[in-house]
Design a protein around this nucleic acid. Structure first.
Lengths: 180, 180
DNA sequence: TTACACATGTAACACGTTACATGATTTT
DNA sequence: AAAATCATGTAACGTGTTACATGTGTAA
């Protein structure tokens, strides 16, 4: 139930509407957790029903802004410190690697170069975020520091994948492999 | 549709039943892609209907073993070389990191140490697989080489996450952070 | 003979995506 | 006046998980 806790976590920074949360989820968290507005609005209704959030204000165009209740604040904290991290991963790129032997040497080389480029670009993007934080482009705050830490993970993971892809190109195929 | 192609990819190694595929998916691919038997059996029926696989033999206890058709072989290949890699990631550990500022310094330190240990153990596990392959414990084959390449990704990713977690412990909290 | 592993399946639910729908406010 | 953006919602579908159900063959 990471969507639920992702929403609570974001609301800990201050009141927000479903629309705000959808945008922020997209900007900030979509790289590690997907969320679209239909499920966000649904989950907000559930969170309100469960007393973890409450309506803070309404605005133009039917805008409904929510804030955390004390129970909600406790729940995010409980999630962070008491629940086990779910380490389930989904990496289609690595899934595909198990089937690399079904590609020709040339196809694989092209594939891995494309992948390496992609990961390198991603790493650079996170490096830019990190540099902006380190330069002090934003107000320093605990939340901002956490984003800096998350960006560091983005740098390191993408850099590791880029290096892996480049290394993989150098692995010689077994004797009886396709070489079309 | 990675389940579909994961099944086709595994069947490229030789005929297998739904039971075989569920076990193999669990052993080999569950680290990067989840799959449970109910959806595997369902997908096999669809693949047969679509002419990508066909019944190869039947066995005791209603066992139904399938093999790839030529169309099926083409489809895995097409997937590997022609379709874009879906780079969608799901990493609850990094999602949580965006909310680290909601933990006390002590809670965060404990959390990151536990995480680092977990990733280090995972990296070691993949190192053991890689070492066995490099030592020649298994027959060398194209498929085996691909598993070696996938294991390398496991080593590098987990090592990167372990180092990230250790680095994150050293990041000083912002001035106004919780310090319970 | 009893337990375990093999083997397939259904049903219900949870989670995630896409398409469609509607209307208000703000900007050009 | 038109277009863009804000804002919320429903419906349908696709994917993934859990629980339940059933029966066969093999090994202790």
């Amino acid at each position: 139930m990471s969507l639920r806790h992702g929403l609570l976590g974001l609301l800990a920074e201050g009141p927000a509407s479903g629309f705000d949360l959808a945008r922020r989820f997209q900007e900030l968290l979509s790289a590690v957790w997907p969320a679209q507005h239909p499920k966000i609005y649904e989950e907000l209704r559930r969170l309100e029903r469960d007393g973890l959030i409450e309506l803070e204000s309404t605005g133009p165009r039917g805008r409904r802004s929510y804030e955390l209740t004390n129970a909600g604040r406790d729940e995010v904290h409980r999630w962070l410190v008491e629940t086990e991290v779910d380490h389930t991963l989904r990496l289609q790129a690595i899934l595909r690697s198990v089937f690399f032997w079904q590609m020709s040497v040339a196809e694989l080389r092209d594939h891995l170069r494309t992948e390496a480029t992609y990961y390198r670009e991603q790493a650079d993007m996170y490096r830019a975020i990190a540099a902006a934080k380190d330069r002090g482009d934003y107000v320093d705050s605990p939340a901002s520091r956490s984003i800096r830490v998350a960006a560091e993970a983005g740098i390191r993971l993408n850099e590791a994948l880029a290096e892996w892809a480049e290394w993989a190109v150098t692995v010689p195929p077994a004797a009886d492999s396709r070489s079309a």
